[in-house]
Simulated scan of single mutants.
Amino acid sequence: MHSVKRFTLLALDLGTQTGWALSSGDRDIISGSESFKPSRFEGGGMRYLRFKRWLTELKSHTDGIDAVYFEEVRRHAGVDAAHAYGGFMAHLTAWCEHHSIPYQGVPVGTIKKHATGKGNASKELMIQAVQQRGHQPVDDNEADAIALLYWALDTQEVSA
């Protein structure tokens, strides 16, 4: 008898504080929130190197990652946030290409509507929506990643 490979999905809410959620074929979900805040002694690119190292470490703890979904942000509160997001997205997509992992950006409104029924749901509503599914996110970034993962599991053709 041979074992069936489980399908592993990674969902990310990209940013200096990156929310993440990972699901394997049995729908077990692990999640968290990872800080990539630059230290005052680091050059500007170090946060992205730490992000790529973290992705590789996450991948090494799984049986591989079969697909990555990330929150696609079209508007940012400020220039710094927009620049940071662009840097994380560039490094994520390059990392996915390097590892031959398909990736897809999903608009924020799509995720919010799936999780709460409202495309403009507040951070609090998003946290409540994932709490109702049995999760205890540490912040809104983790809640957004969990909600994105459920969107992928519920709407995308993913199977072993």
Rank of each mutant, 00 (worst) to 15 (best):
T8I: 11
G119W: 02
H91L: 14
V158P: 00
K37E: 12
V73C: 04
S39Y: 08
G44M: 11
S159M: 13
T116F: 03
F41T: 15
A94D: 09
I30R: 13
I146L: 03
K59S: 09
S39F: 11
Q132L: 15
L149K: 00
N120C: 07
A81G: 10
G44H: 13
T18K: 02
F70T: 05
I65T: 05
T62I: 09
W151P: 00
W95Y: 07
G19T: 03
S35K: 08
W151A: 02
L10S: 01
D13T: 07
P137M: 05
H61Y: 11
V68A: 02
I127T: 01
G45V: 12
K113N: 04
G45D: 11
T155N: 14
S33H: 01
V106E: 01
W20Q: 03
G15S: 05
T62Y: 04
G44F: 10
R50H: 08
A121L: 06
H83W: 11
D140N: 10
F88V: 09
Y69I: 11
Y103H: 13
D80Q: 15
L148N: 01
D144Q: 08
K52G: 05
D66M: 07
D26A: 11
A143I: 05
L49H: 09
K5N: 12
M126S: 01
A67M: 12
Q17K: 14
P137T: 05
A129D: 00
Q136S: 11
G64R: 08
A90D: 08
G45Q: 10
S35W: 04
V138I: 13
N141R: 04
A81C: 09
G32Q: 03
I146K: 00
A121S: 04
H98G: 12
S39E: 09
Y69F: 15
S39V: 13
D154M: 07
A77K: 15
G45M: 11
G105Q: 03
S31E: 02
E97L: 14
Y69Q: 07
H2K: 14
M126F: 02
A90Y: 06
E42A: 07
D13Y: 03
T56K: 09
E71A: 07
L92D: 00
R47E: 01
I30Y: 02
E97K: 14
Y69D: 04
E124W: 09
Q136L: 12
G44K: 15
R6W: 05
K123V: 04
D13R: 04
D63K: 15
S35G: 06
D13H: 05
D28R: 15
D63R: 15
G86V: 10
D13K: 05
L92F: 01
I29V: 12
D144I: 06
C96I: 07
H114F: 07
A21Y: 00
F88R: 04
G15D: 02
F51N: 01
I146M: 01
D63E: 15
L14H: 00
G117A: 03
D13G: 05
N141Y: 02
I29C: 01
P38Y: 08
L22M: 05
L58N: 03
A94W: 06
G134F: 05
